[in-house]
Design a protein around this nucleic acid. Structure first.
Length: 443
RNA sequence: GGCCCCAUCGUCUAGCGGUCCAGGACGUCGCCCUUUCACGGCGAAAACACGGGUUCGAGUCCCGUUGGGGUCACCA
């Protein structure tokens, strides 16, 4: 059986780390089994769904390299849901109810106040034809609820959480269609999972009770439920649930200079027993993906850790992979020389200026002898052959200085910085004339 | 409040009754490399939430406490 997974965001905003993680996992699982990864835009909520968000989600996915094999949107599939609802009506698995949202909220409050679970009382189920006629004569229109079968416990074997059992009597019959005819998430999602041939539903554990309801929907619709896997949610680095996490999206990642490969690598393995490693190609992540490695407790997501991982990935990236994001004219030698010192690719621009632009420094009083000796020596050395080694040897010989007292002044005069890549690699790139000019100017 | 999860180094986790004075990864610290910083290599420190049981023996099983997460929408 081919594996088909789906990522089903509502286009009511951009993706954030929590979303992205389940997208990554769905993609990984599909890739691992050479199956299909479906993007399903759950836009039943017309009020909040916007086309610009749908487009934003596609862009986010593309940036991450998680290309969907197919895309669907629920707003284009309403006829399917109509048909499914008709079948459920015939089977007596759905019934009209007439309470207003305020009435329902009041009922819940009363129940909660008495320390009872706020489960729907099924008043709609007890309505006679005459009751309904009277209600409709009052101008009320029904919304539709799916009737849960209280007869037997709901269960499934969760790929991450193991055997799950729920008592349907403790759950409310879910509203599937509003009185204005618009659809709620629950039924369309099940219908689509069936019709799109979804084999694995991998989502956050905030969906476990939804799954309990939907297991019965699959059965009522005459389809075997897919396999389910519910992963523990992510929490912020402060420990508790973080509001910040919900706004940490691709935009924020770009701003922080995070490499997409880093985000994918991090999200693929955070909360699992697999080590988070700097991998620049997804193959290793695909190959090692395994539900049995998932922990069941919420994992903490820390942006600083991600930034560190991203830096390591930058150190690994070959020139071809980054060339178009580098300053115009920056060649492979430049990249290889500066790469180990970068945290983000954006920093390459700074080094580009340092290597080939204008750098002006002023040597500290006590360093002037070193710089003076260097300026003089630079002119005389055999430039193409390891100039840095020759320069250092000569300056040391003439000034008697070594170690930090020798290197730091030279680095400052030549690059204007206290730290950076190895000078042996930088000096040839700066070039003879420019090096001499900078040393002289520093005096 | 009901229901469902979870609880081992700072963080993510391995551990499925004795082989654990608890293993790995990230981070931290130290050393090496580079006659500086960074990069890289090597090494070290660092944990079984608490209280009761069960058992010859418990990180591992049971109960409770505490703590954390989720959910109980005409959102998804």
């Amino acid at each position: 059986m081919d594996v088909v997974t789906r990522f089903a965001p509502a286009p009511t905003g951009r993706l954030h780390v929590g979303n992205i993680r389940t997208a990554v996992h769905n993609w990984l699982w599909a890739r691992k089994h050479e199956g299909r990864f479906v993007l399903r835009l759950d836009d039943t909520d017309r009020e909040r769904s916007r086309e610009e968000f749908a487009e934003g989600i596609r862009e986010d996915l593309a940036w991450l390299g998680l290309s969907p094999d197919e895309e669907y949107r629920q707003s284009a599939r309403f006829a399917r849901y109509d048909a499914a609802l008709e079948r459920l009506k015939e089977a007596g698995r759905v019934y009209p109810a007439y309470e207003t949202a305020q009435e329902l909220e009041l009922k819940r409050k009363v129940l909660l106040g008495r320390g009872k679970p706020p489960v729907y009382d099924r008043a709609g189920l007890g309505l006679s034809d005459a009751d309904r006629a009277r209600l409709e004569a009052e101008g009320r229109r029904p919304h539709w609820r799916f009737r849960l079968d209280h007869g037997r416990p709901i269960g499934w074997n969760d790929l991450i959480r193991g055997p799950q059992h729920f008592d349907p009597a403790l759950l409310s019959d879910p509203v599937v269609r509003r009185e204005d005819g618009s659809w709620l998430y629950m039924l369309p999602s099940s219908v689509d999972d069936i019709e799109l041939g979804i084999t694995h539903v991998l989502r956050g554990e905030d969906h476990v009770t939804n799954t309990a309801l939907q297991v019965q929907m699959f059965e009522a619709l005459g389809a075997p439920p897919p396999a389910f896997a519910h992963e523990a949610l992510l929490v912020g680095s402060e420990g508790k649930l973080s509001k910040r996490l919900g706004s940490l999206g691709v935009e924020a990642m770009k701003e922080a200079g995070i490499e997409p490969a880093a985000l994918v690598a991090k999200l693929a393995r955070i909360g699992t027993s697999l080590p988070v490693e700097p991998v620049i190609a997804p193959e290793a992540l695909i190959e090692s993906f395994d539900f049995s490695t998932f922990g069941r407790a919420p994992a903490r997501f820390d942006l600083d850790e991600l930034a560190g991982l991203s830096a390591k990935i930058v150190h690994l990236l070959p020139y071809e992979a980054v060339a178009e994001r580098l300053p115009a004219g920056m060649g492979e030698e430049d990249w290889i020389a500066i790469r180990p010192n970068l945290r983000t690719i954006a920093e390459a621009a700074d080094w580009w200026r340092i290597l080939h632009g204008h750098v002006e420094t002023r040597a500290a009083e006590e360093d002037r002898p070193v710089i003076a000796a260097a300026a003089e020596a630079a002119a005389g050395i055999d430039w193409p052959d390891e100039p840095w080694r020759q320069l250092v040897a000569l300056v040391k010989e003439r000034t008697g200085r070594g170690g930090k007292a020798l290197f730091l002044p030279l680095r400052r005069a030549l690059t204007g910085r206290d730290s950076g890549p190895e000078m042996a690699a930088l000096l040839p790139l700066i070039g003879r004339a420019e090096a001499i000019a900078r040393l002289t100017a520093a005096l």
